[in-house]
Design a protein around this nucleic acid. Sequence first.
DNA 1: AACTAAAACGACAGTTTGTTTATTATCTTA
DNA 2: TAAGATAATAAACAAACTGTCGTTTTAGTT
Lengths: 206, 206
Amino acid sequence: MSGNPTDLRVVRTKQAIRAALIALIEEKGFEAISVKDITERANINRGTFYSHYEDKFDLMDKCQEQLLKEMETKIVPNIPKLIEETKKHEAGPMPIAVLMPFFEFLHANQSFMKALLGPKGDAAFQVKMKECLNRGMFGPENAIFNADGLLVPPRYLASYIASAHIGVIQEWLNGGAIEPPEEIARIISAMTIHGPLFAAGIRKKR
Amino acid sequence: MSGNPTDLRVVRTKQAIRAALIALIEEKGFEAISVKDITERANINRGTFYSHYEDKFDLMDKCQEQLLKEMETKIVPNIPKLIEETKKHEAGPMPIAVLMPFFEFLHANQSFMKALLGPKGDAAFQVKMKECLNRGMFGPENAIFNADGLLVPPRYLASYIASAHIGVIQEWLNGGAIEPPEEIARIISAMTIHGPLFAAGIRKKR
DNA sequence: AACTAAAACGACAGTTTGTTTATTATCTTA
DNA sequence: TAAGATAATAAACAAACTGTCGTTTTAGTT
């Protein structure tokens, strides 16, 4: 079994597999990919693949887990801060600065994020990412949304916000992530704070 | 080739295949399904499957197309009416009545919708459904969102709203669609009109 | 430079696939 | 209701992919 994670050969092989996976998901979607496809694209022997992963699902899981872990540990802790700031100056602009690490992370992992969130990607990953975002908003450090005065059940509020944000991110990545992360942070904030219809110019009153 | 769509045998077979597909997607996800799985579950001969569909992807496509067509032709024409109503009484409650056919359609097609939009479903279907919703909001009959005064680029507005709505629908279906369609229509409307943060009780001012 | 571990190679049986044949069952319609 | 048409079944096929092994070669580590 190939285990040593510092051995350059292992590092190289895993990188090649990962890159091949990303490219192939974008090309024909995860379900249409065979292990043979991956190893041919990565220029490695098929047997080598099986010494690192059980099958293509195992590979997918491990890649996603790594990504989500990074997302969670680096990004999510900021969300409570964000909501706190928002509460302070209620009518003011959103404190975008606190969102930036998240969007910069997405930008840095563009290709994989695009593949996973794209039309040929994985619906399960979207669910995991929503859970990740929701832990930030509804987690134990954060009693805000658990308070009274909600017009809607909390789980629908969470679904709405998380899905909306992921939707914008999908659109951003799908268009090649041309706009800088700050711009996307501003766009998302505007809609979540003021409501999408106000952002659309339909509801003028505030 | 088996073609006659009125022959009872054909109708029965296609129904069985479709039901098997839905059940299996929920159980192990589309990518893990084999044609053999489908025909065993449907209690039909494997050869029979191939006389109706090219492969499992063809089956999936045809089932989705049927669903989306129904969604589009029956539901989407109502959206312009909806926005018009919303503009009239700006601060009033959303005219939920006009949304009802859409949510009743979802409720009637619960099992398939749940399978397609669930964690083991198809990311491409979500994209198609978003496009369906967006055609309603940004279509030619409807110049509202093309007007000036947008705080954000229109495609991000569209992505935000469509994804948010689908997210709530996913949550609804995933929980067994316990709430009646009217309730979900009300919940979604509240968040889209007033903004999710207002609905959360965080932003009190209007 | 020697040691060690990873990668390549080639072979294996077991599945699934898509196609085709002949046979049986069942629907339509006259 | 009987005759003819056609859909479904059953069984067999090569081709492709899978997951696993044992052996040999290559390359990184010390």
